[in-house]
Nucleic acid binder design. Structure first.
Lengths: 139, 139
DNA sequence: TATAAGCTTAGAGTTAACTCTAAGGTCAAT
DNA sequence: ATTGACCTTAGAGTTAACTCTAAGCTTATA
């Protein structure tokens, strides 16, 4: 399978596939005489794994680790896998909390403002932003 | 007020303050003979505004717009302000949805796996990632 | 055989918002 | 006069994950 075919099958661009190879995630098992990449079915599955993990939120670094477990499951424990997953969940939860706080603030701001064609002299959104002490003042 | 004092009062680094100036957000109204920045109270309030807006989730670009409204509220409508805010809320909501989906996937993965010291040969997290079609397959 | 589509590489560019460095001037205190 | 802390600038580096470009082969088709 040539790179463009893998690209089609996976929905990842050829650029991205090469990028993954350069970063040690997935490489084509074979090359043609001319140097063209040829991917086996197993290669493609590995690509799919990376894609699925990406969609699940894992970083490429996380995925490196997951892949090294994948190629030799015998030598790794479930705990290693859940550790990576747990860590990612914590990150997601943290980000989620931050965004939820922003969401709430933005909703309050929108509720407070008329949003009409009046000039902004007494706009309550501007006033709120001017008042400071938004919510979490990260310092 | 010198830059380090503003830094202390606002919790933003002097580097960041200069960065904001370079990007047209907030500059010191005055300079000493030697070229030292001197901030007025109004300057500092403007810095606070930027900080509050940042904490609320606005990008520096958004803040540029908000600031240009702020300096001449008469010439701008509440609607302009709510438009910016609304747009930001939509972005936040989109990101939130994405993260919630990840959160759910990660939680399911964690529930499915024993997480113990057994080797990963039959790890259900690895299996799930291998099965692909995670949730939203963005293509 | 010519043309176009597709492949290769190294390396630069993108995005956002900082963050840091280097080289040098200034200021207050000793 | 000499520290040492603080200030200045221009410009480079950081992070993550691509994305794109240029220059040059290769391969399939007409």
């Amino acid at each position: 399978m040539k790179i463009s075919e893998v690209s089609q099958q996976t929905g990842l661009s050829a650029h991205t596939l090469r990028y993954y190879e350069k970063h040690g995630l997935v490489s084509a098992s074979n090359r043609s005489e001319a140097g063209y990449r040829f991917y086996t079915e197993l290669d493609v599955r590995r690509v799919q794994f990376v894609k699925t993990a990406r969609n699940t939120g894992f970083s490429l670094d996380d995925i490196q680790q997951l892949l090294s477990i994948r190629v030799d499951k015998q030598s790794h424990s479930c705990q290693e896998v859940t550790d990576i997953t747990q860590k990612k969940l914590l990150q997601v939860n943290a980000k989620l909390a931050e965004l939820q706080s922003m969401q709430q603030t933005l909703e309050l701001l929108l509720e407070s403002c008329c949003g009409g064609p009046e000039n902004a002299t007494h706009c309550s959104i501007m006033e709120a932003l001017d008042a400071g002490r938004s919510k979490e003042d990260k310092n």
